[in-house]
Amino acid sequence: MNGSGFIKGMFVTLRHFVNSYVDDVRYGFRKFSPQVDNFELRQGTQAEGVFTVQYPDEKVAVPERFRFVPFLVVNNFDHASDPGKDWCTSCGICAKVCPPQCIWIVRSEDPTTGRPVPEPEAFFIDIDICMNCGFCAEFCPFDAIKMDHDYELASFDRTNNHVFDKPKLSKEMRYWKSIAPTRAVEEMQVRGGWEHKDAQKAERRGGAVRGKPEAAAPATAAVAEDASKEAKREAVRARKAEAEAAPAPVAEATPAADGGSGAKPWTASHDENEKRKAAALARKAARAAKRGEG
């Protein structure tokens, strides 16, 4: 009969319509009560009918491997010997393997010898550019960079908020354990313990933690060593401050010339931004004029 196929199709719609209430009845409308574990009913594998989630009041849990903008693992802040120490050794592998090249790392150098120190002085990720591919975490040989689960990163000010620096990126080891318990344990087994690879190696060697041969020195020398450490830190800080204070690339500079001068546009003050804008407009006008002539 002409139309029977269509009517059969309408029954499918009707079935869906009815089913969206069946669960309600079956579970006595618990589906909509705020406290009960009603997700089971709506999102479980047996669920029928309405399926959607009332974000942001309800959130679907993300699986362990879920990957969003990476973070840097640091020692727990209550770590016995090195609270908050970076796991990253600034080897640069993640910066090289990052497809859109959104990781920027400044390697520390020993202020006296000038030799590289296995610790990043600065570490940036431009989260606007990050494509959440997870390569950095996959290829980091020190388990120092991991993919996060926090996907609510939207902000109203892209320019100032979306380049994450080291303090913003750093999260405790404990956090990684909490979001990826099985993975963290697997990694621990490969490393042979919960501590950083290098820390363990140093321990096996009977002493020094990487980059800190002083730690193994006898107690009497320890105080002196501490002082020298402090001095070094002071030097690094001073250098950082200097870099900070270095004049921002002034707008008059030719566009491509200010490559690695260390200025960080998002930290620039309002005035500087204004200046830059004005200069840009001037350049634009100049170019337009030139085009007009040509």
Binding site: G92, A95, K96, V106, F124, D258, G260, P265
Partner: peptide, 11 residues
């Protein structure tokens, strides 16, 4: 080359 070791970020 600008990303490491002297990776001072710019947009």
């Amino acid at each position: 080359g600008s990303r490491w070791p002297g990776g001072h970020v710019h947009r």
